[in-house]
């Protein structure tokens, strides 16, 4: 079992290293130079000589491979480089912005899970076929809605039409309602689809009919047999959901003008501040890898069929 754990952790570290390398190649090694954009600006009035000095102070003139090694070393020790535009360590910027994004993403995820479970299980219990069809059509609609537009529509309806939530300086909790809804609705869609499909799959399994033949009612069978089996495949898309969640959070923050990783990212792209974007990308990849690692390690606990296989490796 311990060897299995090590091998999985090793694989995760490998993917993370590869993601770092990809981000480095994309953002540092290829042309496009934030320093030049900032300091060549005529308003600064710097001479080419002074610009060279600044470049040297950022380490932009060291050979690429050395830059890579330094950057990798920095990431491993928690030094994520300097933001050219803001002139502060990237770590500080992240530290200032992560909590707010985490709150939004965490609440959004929770709401998405509740929404997905509600739609999926209600649709399988729905007494009328029209109701079932309507509920099952919801995820396709949700997945087709652009996040940013959804946010704007929600603002339009709840802030301007119904005037339920003030646009400017709403109370903290109230201010989170619309962003969380904006994020949760599209993120819930893939989860709902997987849940509905797996509930349908499991319901056709013979063991469900056998449980019915023992005298279990529909609701009994759903809660005692179908639910747990149906949830298992949904867990495997946790990584995919995380990606949706991060992308969605970036857009949601922009729409609602909230501080966070999203705004940081947008500023970084606008000023071609590669160090910041690289840090965000590696952070997101790390989160993805950790979530998948957790799923991999948790799965055998939830699905006894895999326990023996995992154990057999030791």
């Amino acid at each position: 079992m311990r060897r299995h754990l090590f091998s999985r952790v090793g694989q995760a570290a490998l993917v993370l290293w590869a993601a770092f390398t990809v981000a480095f190649i994309l953002l540092q090694a290829l042309p496009g130079d934030a320093l030049l954009i900032k300091y060549q600006n005529p308003d600064m009035g710097l001479s080419p000589r002074e610009i060279e000095d600044i470049r040297a102070s950022y380490g932009a003139d060291t050979p690429l491979f050395l830059q890579y090694v330094q950057s990798l070393g920095g990431f491993l020790t928690g030094n994520l480089g300097y933001s050219v535009q803001a002139g502060v360590p990237v770590v500080d910027q992240l530290a200032a912005n992560v909590p707010s994004t985490l709150a939004l993403a965490g609440l959004g995820f929770l709401a998405a899970v509740i929404l997905a479970a509600a739609i999926a299980f209600l649709s399988s219990l729905a007494p009328f076929s029209w109701l079932r069809d309507a509920l099952q059509a919801l995820p396709s609609l949700f997945i087709s809605v652009p996040v940013f537009w959804l946010g704007i529509v929600l603002i339009q309806v709840f802030s301007f039409q119904l005037k339920l939530i003030p646009v400017i300086n709403p109370p903290e909790a109230l201010g989170l309602v619309l962003p969380v809804a904006t994020l949760a609705i599209p993120v819930s869609a893939p989860l709902t689809q997987v849940l509905i499909r797996s509930i349908d799959d499991v319901r056709t399994q013979p063991f469900v009919a056998v449980a019915r033949a023992r005298g279990g009612s529909n609701a009994w069978v759903l809660s005692h047999h179908v639910a747990r089996n149906a949830v298992l495949p949904a867990i495997t898309i946790a990584g995919v959901l995380l990606g949706e969640l991060i992308g969605g959070a970036v857009v949601t923050e922009t729409v609602f003008g909230r501080n966070g990783i999203g705004q940081l990212t947008q500023e970084a792209v606008n000023s071609q501040d590669a160090a910041v974007l690289q840090a965000v990308v590696v952070l997101a990849a790390a989160a993805f890898v950790l979530v998948n690692l957790a799923v991999d390690l948790l799965y055998p606990v939830l699905d006894p069929r895999l326990k023996r296989k995992a154990g057999a490796l030791t």
Binding site: V15, L16, A18, A19, V22, A23, L26, L27, G32, G239, L242, G243, E244, I246, G247, V250, V251, T265, V269, Q272, A274, L277, V280, V281, A284, A285, F288, V289
Partner: peptide
């Protein structure tokens, strides 16, 4: 590795 980077961030990296 490609999957580990959220789509939007990957797109933004390429746009940079």
């Amino acid at each position: 590795v490609l999957l580990s980077i959220p789509g939007l961030l990957l797109s933004l990296s390429i746009i940079i």
